[in-house]
Amino acid sequence: MKPKTSLVCLVALLSTSALAACAPPEDDSQDSGAGSDAASATSLDDFGSMDDLVAAAEEEGELNVIALPPDWANYGEIISTFQEKYDIKINSAQPDAASQDEINAADQLKGTDRAPDVFDLGQSVALANTDMFAPYQVETFDEIPEEFKDPDGAWVNDYGGYMSVGYDSTKVPEVTSLEDLLGPEFKGKVALNGDPTAAGAAFSGVVMASVANGGSADDIKPGVDFFADLKDAGNFLPVDPTAATIESGQTPVVIDWDYLNAAESAKVDGWEVFVPEEAPIAGYYFQAINADAPHPAAARLWQEFLYSDEGQNLWLKGGARPVRADAMVEAGSIDQELYDALPEVTGTPVIPTNEQTETMAAYLADNWAKAVG
């Protein structure tokens, strides 16, 4: 699952190539005229046509992505489909990295051909680093609701879901509220997907706990208090959950996005998914292009692919809700069977605004470690 490994591990894995690339490689795509043009392109019009963009991207021949686990919202199939469709090799670095690790890697590897070309980020990390993004409006930009994109295309929401509790019903009682997780039956069993100061899923998990305990998107303190109580009860399990830890039974209760927890239902007998009616926290991830992308044309082609009907339906296949879903339903281009199979969520969705997210992130930065560790 996404957002785990620290930058230390990332740099260790990339150390040989990173050290060899301390100076920009002679064949760096940004040194060419075509690369420079691609790096400043803000829409398909700057290339002339989709065929021209494809040609420029295939000339670069590579795309660097980071923090995209194959089992996260169907990214494995998305990556393989893109590679089969275009003559471009995708270099996928540290799939289990957190959103903040993506930004750290871009800083560490800036000026080399190993830097990430694109980002897939949680809201709080994305909004804190918009100066690193290259504005680009994909061909389907007008079909994306205004509230889910930067007006210039510096960032665009891509896919989303609801925060949930996944649990092995053969090991713990039925979960009917977050309050249940404080009971003795859950001792040492409740895991949160990441550190909420660095990972989008964990951040939204704390928001869910806050709303369920009398807080709101304007007040995340009750959520921090809930996890402090969970720790004091001995129920909080300080293990970052993955498909492997779930399937082995190491993390029998996981607070994570519904599309990730739902994917485990097909693998683990008795795995159930609960979205609290009193706290249906919805959220989208943020897609952006690294302004210093070593493969700027490939980065823009990747965005075009992700926001095409094909790319959006591939996220839907992973159980996530694509940002263009409404427009695709109206146009008849969505995979209706997959769309109809999405779990029904009751209650009024809570989607924190950018301003609320920034305020909550600041509170977490000051208080999470002191309260939970």
Rank of each mutant, 00 (worst) to 15 (best):
N193L: 13
S15R: 13
D219R: 06
K317V: 00
E146V: 14
V239G: 05
D229S: 14
A331K: 14
A41F: 04
A20P: 00
A298I: 09
N235H: 08
A67V: 02
L181T: 01
N129L: 11
V138R: 07
D240R: 11
S36H: 13
K4P: 05
V239M: 11
F286S: 04
L109T: 03
V206M: 02
A67D: 06
L342E: 09
D195G: 01
P343S: 10
F227Y: 14
G283K: 00
E146A: 14
D46P: 06
D225E: 15
N129F: 13
F236M: 13
E147R: 11
S308T: 10
D142M: 06
D51F: 11
D158S: 13
K370D: 15
A299N: 05
E337C: 03
A293T: 12
F203R: 00
I334M: 14
Y86T: 00
K189Q: 10
E60N: 08
T5P: 00
P184W: 10
N64W: 11
Y162Q: 01
A73Q: 03
L237G: 03
E26Y: 00
I90Q: 06
K267D: 09
T348P: 00
E102I: 01
K231R: 15
E174Y: 05
G48P: 09
E62I: 08
K89L: 08
I90P: 04
V118T: 15
E26F: 05
G48T: 11
L237P: 01
I144Y: 12
F274Y: 15
A266P: 06
G205L: 02
D366G: 10
Y307Q: 09
D158E: 10
A362Q: 15
G332M: 11
V224A: 01
A202F: 02
A371W: 10
A202R: 03
A134T: 05
D218Q: 14
K231Y: 00
P238I: 07
P352I: 01
P196Q: 07
Q287E: 07
Y307C: 09
T353K: 06
S124P: 01
P276D: 10
T357W: 01
F226P: 01
T359L: 12
G234K: 09
V268E: 08
N367I: 08
T251Q: 00
A320P: 04
L301Q: 05
I281T: 09
G223I: 02
T112R: 10
D218T: 14
G122L: 09
A288V: 08
V329S: 11
P252G: 05
D131Q: 12
P3M: 06
D96H: 12
A18I: 05
A362T: 14
G223Y: 03
Q356W: 10
A371D: 12
F47V: 02
Y339H: 13
K267A: 06
Q94L: 15
K171T: 09
I144L: 13
A126W: 07
S92I: 07
A128N: 04
P222D: 05
E264D: 13
